[in-house]
């Protein structure tokens, strides 16, 4: 039988920490159990990347573009993850009956969202590394890294901004319900184009590049390319330092936005009975 004494329960920051990892866990363990995910999230971006490489080679594009595409392809995995596994996750969790239990538990909703993000980043990072490794080997890409610490910093800040945006989307998508699918579909392809997954964003011209910069991957990718393929003149929509600052601002805005939206969502949900309704 159960021991009679009361259970000690963490609160505050420790509870926040527990909650993040508890929610990250199914993401991390899940992908080792569901092999089809590995296929969709690795092989598909890999094929997309490879086809661009072949197109570039066929039309005689500069050899440097191969490297750009490979890096872009690896980062695509993160974008897909944010779109399909972050933004729509609360919606699924509501559908499955988990959201209610998340809300009644003392673990903060924001920690739950962060857990989803952490799990997503870790899992997707393995995919990105696979894509990067396989393509670099296949297409014989050479890298000239200007500053590794700066590169890591840019990557981290890009992830913060990107998943911050994903967390904010999660609330919006939940409020929008089924319509959200269309938004996701709508966003997927144009973003590939505009944010320069497959070629330097600078080539898109100033205005499109500026608009596309709202998506954190755009500047993150441009900055990372500048650092990895140092000295290529087609790169550098803005300087790495400026891009870093903008990315920092974006992450603060998105994460702050996510916190606010989530609080709002819970408030409206409790008032209008949206947390408890079942669609099925």
């Amino acid at each position: 039988m159960l021991p009679a004494e009361r259970v000690q329960k963490a609160t505050g920051l420790r509870l926040f920490w527990y909650t993040i990892w508890a929610r990250a866990y199914p993401r991390i363990i899940g992908s080792t159990r569901e092999k089809s995910w590995l296929f969709f999230e690795t092989v598909l971006p890999l094929m997309g990347t490879a086809s661009y490489v072949f197109v570039y080679r066929a039309i005689g594009a500069p050899e440097a573009y191969t490297g750009f595409v490979v890096l872009g392809g690896a980062m695509t995995a993160f974008w897909l993850n944010v779109l399909w596994a972050m933004a729509s996750q609360l919606y699924w969790d509501k559908d499955g009956g988990n959201l209610e239990l998340y809300v009644v538990s003392p673990g903060p909703l924001m920690a739950i969202l962060l857990g989803m993000a952490v799990g997503g980043i870790l899992m997707t990072a393995t995919r990105a590394v696979i894509i990067l490794g396989v393509c670099s080997f296949l297409f014989n890409v050479s890298y000239q890294i200007a500053s590794l610490p700066l590169l890591v910093l840019i990557f981290v800040v890009t992830m913060a901004a990107l998943y911050g945006m994903g967390m904010m989307f999660a609330s919006i998508f939940l409020a929008a319900g089924r319509e959200a699918w269309h938004i996701s579909n709508l966003l997927q392809e144009p973003i590939y184009l505009a944010s320069g997954f497959y070629f330097p964003v600078k080539a898109m011209g100033f205005w499109i590049a500026t608009f596309a910069s709202v998506i954190p991957l755009t500047l993150g990718l441009d900055a990372m390319r500048q650092l990895i393929f140092a000295g290529d003149p087609t790169l550098g929509f803005l300087s790495v330092e400026v891009e870093l600052i903008i990315l920092l601002v974006l992450s603060v805005v998105f994460i702050y936005g996510a916190i606010k939206m989530l609080a709002k969502l819970e408030e409206i949900g409790r008032r209008e009975g949206r947390l408890i309704e079942r669609r099925r």
Partner: peptide, 21 residues
Amino acid sequence: SGYGLLTVEENLWMFARFYGL
């Protein structure tokens, strides 16, 4: 509720952590 890919133990562990255990 829960995630189908998790075992009974893992699923319960996740919720226990949300309560600060």
